[in-house]
Write a protein that binds this DNA or RNA. Structure first.
Lengths: 193, 193
DNA sequence: CCATCACTTGACACTGTGTAAAGTTGACAC
DNA sequence: GTGTCAACTTTACACAGTGTCAAGTGATGG
C-alpha cells in the first residue's frame, strides 16, 4: 500500500492475467502496461523481462486460486476410489480457470527455458497429485494388477493433461461436465482392476 | 530440373524439414536459406512468407512419407478390431517421423491463422481415420454400447493425439514400442464392449 | 527544504520478417 | 555474337516488438 490501494506489482499481475484470460494471443508488453495503467517502461521496474512477468503471473494465479487448498479436499477422501474421483474433480475444475495462462506459458516454452521450467514445475505438481491418488488405489488393492504405480501415474497424468482438456472441450466441443465425467470413467477403466 | 538436379523449391523444402527434424527451435528464414544454399531473399521468390513455407513443408512431408498409402493397409483389415489395431500401428508409427514438423506448426498456430488451419486439416485427416476404425468396430457389434460413434471417435482421436505421444515418450520417457502397445490396450479398453 | 521513491518521457539498440531495387550469371533463341 | 529471360545475389530499408538508458517530474516523509 505504498502508493495506491493495491500495489503496482499486483495491478500488473492482475492486468496480465485478465489479458491472458481474454484469450487474446500475442499479448505485448505495451498491452499489459496499458491495461495496468502505467508506462511500458515501468513494467521493467518490476519484472526484468516478459518471460519473468508471465511466470510471476502464473504463480500469482496459483496463489489467488489456491490450488493447494482445493487439493486438500481430495487428500481427505476415505477410499482410494473416492480420492481418485475427488482429485479428478478438483483438477479438471481447475483447468478452465488457468487455461489462458497455460496457453501463454506453453507457447513460450519453445523459446524460453524459464517458461518451460515454470510449466514443468506446475505439471510436476499435478503429477504428484496423480501419484498420490494411484498410491491410495494401490493401498486398497484396487489398482489394475498389470500396472506398476509409475505406469498408472503416467497414464492418469497424461489423461488429465491440459492438452486433452483442450482437445475434448475445444476441438470436440464437449461441455465441461461431460469432459469431467468421461475422465472419471476413463481413469477407472484404465487404472482400476 | 530447370537448374540443378533437384529444383530449388524442393531443396528449400528438404532443408526446412531437416532443420525442423533436428529439434532446433526458433528456426529463422536465414537458417533455412543457409541450409538450402541460397540467399535469404531468394526464399521469398518461392514462398511469400514463413507461414506458407512451413505449411508447404508439411504438405511436402506428407507426400514424401506417403501417409495415405500407409493408411491403405488399415483399410484392408478384415475385422473391426484388426482395423483398429492396424490404424493405431500406422498412425503411432507416423508420429515420430513428423514430430519436428508438428512442433513448428503448432507453435505457429497462435499467431498465424493459416498455420492453424494447416494443422487442423492434417488432424482432420487423422480424425477421419479414427472415425472409419470406429465404424468398422460398430459394424462388427464390437463397439461399447455406452458410446455413440461420434463419442468413440472423439475418444480415439484424443487418445492418439500428437500431444499424448509427446507426453508419454518425452515427459514420461516411454519407448515407442511401449507407447504403441499401451495405445492399443487403452483404445480397446475404452471403445470395445 | 531536500532527498528519495515510483513513475514518465523520449531515444535508441537489437532481432527477425518482409519489401524493394539494381546487378550478375547462365541458358537458350535467333 | 547479341539479346533476352529467368533465377538468383547483394544491398538497403521499413516495421514490429523487446529490452536498455538517461533525464525529468511529482508526491511523501524526515
Amino acid at each position: 500500500m505504498s502508493r495506491d490501494q493495491i500495489s503496482t506489482k499486483t495491478r500488473i499481475l492482475d492486468a496480465t492475467w485478465k489479458l491472458l484470460e481474454s484469450g487474446d494471443k500475442n499479448i505485448r508488453m505495451s498491452d499489459i502496461a496499458k491495461a495496468a495503467g502505467i508506462s511500458r517502461q515501468a513494467l521493467y521496474l518490476h519484472f526484468p523481462n516478459r518471460a519473468d512477468l508471465l511466470i510471476a503471473t502464473a504463480r500469482h494465479l496459483d496463489s489467488v486460486k489456491n490450488i493447494d487448498g482445493r487439493l486438500e479436499r481430495s487428500r481427505a477422501a476415505q477410499s482410494g476410489m473416492a480420492r481418485l474421483e475427488a482429485f479428478i474433480e478438483v483438477w479438471t475444475g481447475y483447468i478452465p480457470e488457468i487455461h489462458g495462462m497455460s496457453v501463454a506459458l506453453r507457447a513460450m516454452r519453445a523459446s524460453d527455458a524459464e517458461a518451460a521450467s515454470a510449466w514443468n514445475d506446475r505439471m510436476g505438481a499435478v503429477r504428484h497429485g496423480c501419484a498420490a491418488a494411484v498410491q491410495a488405489l494401490a493401498k486398497d488393492g484396487d489398482l489394475n494388477a498389470d500396472l506398476s504405480e509409475k505406469t498408472a501415474t503416467d497414464l492418469l497424468w497424461t489423461l488429465l493433461s491440459v492438452e486433452n482438456w483442450e482437445h475434448f472441450t475445444q476441438d470436440c466441443g464437449w461441455p465441461q461436465s461431460r469432459y469431467e465425467n468421461t475422465m472419471k470413467t476413463l481413469a477407472k477403466a484404465a487404472l482400476v482392476s
